[in-house]
Amino acid sequence: MSHGHEDHSSHIKEYWWVFAALMFFTGLTVAVWGWFDFGRPGFSAGDCVVGLLIACVKASLVGLIFMHLREERGLIYKILVFTFYFFAALMFLCLFALSDPIRPVFGLNL
């Protein structure tokens, strides 16, 4: 907010570097996808983990640099921490419930 003009122009370079990094990671995702596929038909946990890890790195770059979270006030972080907590609850408790149904599951022998 209170940065001078020079401050902003020095940021411009940084933004382009981030852009380059994002491009690189996009390429990496696709490459990893092709590589993991080699000799392994179908979906594997490795795909999932690597794909999402790269996505997380990209997301952090966008969040920290483009959305200025790096230099943001504590209040915003608090809001985001709340949100993350609720988001995690939504994701993991549903999965938790799904992974633990009363056995036997119907019709396994169908």
């Binding site: 995702t29 996808w33 979906f43 795909d47 794909g51 999402l52 996505a55 997301a59 966008v62």
Partner: peptide
């Protein structure tokens, strides 16, 4: 940011 996650889970996985 949403698309960054959508791309791997919809297209690659």
């Amino acid at each position: 940011l949403v698309w960054i996650f959508l791309f791997p889970i919809m297209y690659l996985m």
